[in-house]
């Protein structure tokens, strides 16, 4: 197996998965403490994400008060110890801010914010362990945490990623594959209505392949929905 091969001729990937396999997903809904209104943690392979939801509560900052609906405040944080190299977080990391704003707009579409005027729903996301796919791990975990907090939503929001490498589409791209310049498409959708709420592709992908990658990401979302739905029913 060459170093540049993302998928070997035998059809295996670096972490031993087949091309269209998800990583192992473990969901924990609800926390021990009463600090947060809702809490959830999801392990997707080696990516570990913890989300705490506060609210609807009185806005902590005056400028967050909206007269017609609740404001959604997202704080996205990548722990210093989360990846191989220990790095100090910059105060205004543009990449993290962008993630936060993507997640904010995703959930503003799903939460029934108009039932809580002048309130604030705060979502605190912590990536405790980073192995790629932090955006969709964060979205899936936030969905569970919001449901744990009893915040009304139109539907689940489930997310997944898919990429294209070695002439084949691959599902749920991990960090090693991400750093091998695999074009990765992140997709978040509402599974029951099939509405797409977020579609993010940061590198170039040939139009001929786009359709297949999108279809695979959708397939990943559907599978993820089954896992999340089971987790909230069990809890």
């Amino acid at each position: 197996m060459g170093k540049t091969e993302v998928v070997t001729d035998e059809g295996f990937r670096i972490d031993g998965r087949r091309a269209h396999e998800l990583r192992r997903v473990v969901c924990t809904v609800g926390g021990e403490s009463y600090v947060a209104d809702g809490e959830a943690m999801i392990d997707t392979g080696n990516t570990k994400c913890l989300v705490r939801v506060f609210g609807p509560r009185e806005p902590t900052v005056r400028s967050n008060v909206l007269l017609e609906r609740a404001s959604v405040v997202v704080d996205f944080n990548l722990a210093a110890f989360s990846s191989g190299e220990r790095k100090q977080k910059l105060r205004q990391d543009k990449r993290l801010l962008e993630m936060a704003s993507l997640i904010k707009s995703t959930f503003e579409a799903a939460i029934l914010t108009q039932s809580f005027p002048r309130s604030e729903i705060a979502i605190q996301i912590q990536i405790l362990q980073f192995d790629g796919g932090s955006l969709h791990a964060a979205i899936n975990t936030t969905t569970l945490a919001l449901m744990n907090a009893g915040i009304p939503m139109l539907d689940f929001v489930v997310a997944s990623s898919a990429g294209f490498a070695n002439g084949t589409t691959i599902l749920d791209v991990n960090y090693t594959e991400e750093s091998m310049d695999v074009p990765t498409l992140s997709l978040a959708m509402m599974p029951r209505s099939g509405k797409v709420v977020l579609l993010n592709l940061e590198s170039r992908l040939h139009l001929n392949e786009f359709e297949g990658v999108l279809r695979l990401a959708k397939e990943g979302c559907t599978r993820m929905y089954g896992i999340l739905d089971e987790a909230v029913r069990r809890n």
Binding site: D37, M147, I151, M153
Partner: peptide
């Protein structure tokens, strides 16, 4: 339904009572 909870019905009114809520 918009929340995780149990369906409650009073005559013609159907509501879902959430498991946890503020």
């Amino acid at each position: 339904a918009t929340v995780v909870g149990y369906v409650e019905r009073i005559n013609k009114l159907i509501s879902v009572r959430p498991v946890r809520q503020r």
